[in-house]
Design a protein around this nucleic acid. Structure first.
Lengths: 224, 224
DNA sequence: CGCTATGGATAACT
DNA sequence: AGTTATCCATAGCG
């Protein structure tokens, strides 16, 4: 179960029970015992997209729709070869996530790296690496020569500060991020903007030689 | 536009054109001009959930389904008062995101904080704060007294290292995170697991006094 | 990008 | 949890 071989769950067949017969005239003989039931339920009605006030109903809807959302995400991922991660916090702050969120967060943060304005000598685009292939911020403090320690500390301080404010500053680019506190109506507007293809970002942002040093969480070698 | 007041876009009305008439007997008189069109298109067929090989078709599907996914997410967010963030990388690594991803990443990372095993003196759960209310890692390097500089540096080094490995170590809890490289079939299995309510995490993880120091990106005061 | 037919998600009810 | 009737997302085409 360590490498996610899905063990015993049959993931693909579950989506495709595949009666492998003529797909038309699907005489679904389910519940033959009570085949006569002209109109018992009202079926699915249209509901208004507004916060559900009744607690129980909201929880049921949350569970159902979350399942549906994750299923759609899985389908999209498979169909289009995309990586998708979803983070969901319920009202009472229970977290439900889908996909390899950690890896995606890593990738996401890497896409819009923090700019380090001061760092010890040179910039990384010019190949200012250590001899063991590490960027300066990856090196242990002990390996920094004493005469560079001061600026190293400064740079590290800036790095740390950038890191702390990272999350709140990344919105400078073309992503839709200017929500005040996500007051639950903004989601629609968010999707509205999203739907308008406003958030497509193709900034490579890595390996660029713009002179500034870019910070990335993890260069290449994920330590598994 | 700084505080995300959504400016001129009319978000709610757009979702609800709301004919505000009797919702039944919706005689959709669309395209009255060519009302006779017995069967022109084959409509929607069932497709197999398998990677679409034809490039153009895959892109179209990606666009359509991504829109649908984001719409569903928005609806879920509004209906249930949940915070939802989606990160999507297309095959060619274009990123599309939904929701206040930064804030959610912050919250997500805070839910399973990095344990800092060594830091200068005391642990934060015991209220080891600076007099200006900052945790030690938030303080500038310059404010660290000289006699503590050495251990400060060590701790900062550990912090940085933890930060780098953060993303790959967080999977120790009950989240489904053990995907090898997201090889595009795992998504289904992932959703399968998800669907089984295996990823509900109610670890508070914050404010706990387990003796270890917990690291959080940003304690409380997001700088706007 | 629009249209249409249909598969599938799901609100309401057991 | 299971069922069903509805509604909506969307595959396949202009």
């Amino acid at each position: 179960m360590e490498d996610g071989e899905a063990s015993t769950i049959t993931f693909l067949p579950t989506t495709e029970p595949k009666p492998l017969q003529n797909p038309n005239l699907l005489a679904k003989p389910k519940k033959e015992t009570k085949q006569k039931k002209p109109k018992t339920t009202k079926g699915r009605q249209k509901i208004e997209i507004k916060e559900i006030m009744l607690e129980t109903r909201r929880q049921v809807t949350f569970s159902k729709r979350r399942s549906g959302l994750f299923k759609k995400a899985a389908e999209l991922s498979v169909l289009c070869g995309a990586q998708i991660g979803i983070i969901t916090f319920s009202r009472c702050d229970r977290i439900y996530s889908f996909g390899n969120v950690n890896s995606l967060i890593d990738k996401y943060l890497r896409k819009a790296p923090v700019m380090l304005r001061s760092h010890p000598g040179g910039n990384v685009a010019n190949g200012e690496e250590d001899n063991d292939g590490l960027m300066w911020w990856e090196r242990a403090v002990e390996s920094v020569p004493e005469e560079h320690m001061e600026e190293y500390k400064n740079a590290l301080s800036v790095l740390r500060e950038n890191l702390l404010t990272r999350i709140y500053q990344m919105s400078g680019d073309r992503t839709v991020e200017n929500l005040p506190a996500f007051p639950n109506e903004m989601a629609m507007a968010d999707w509205k903007l999203t739907n308008e293809n406003l958030m497509a970002r193709n900034d490579r942002g890595y390996g660029g030689n713009n002179g500034d040093l870019e910070f990335a969480f993890m260069p290449q070698n994920g330590r598994q």
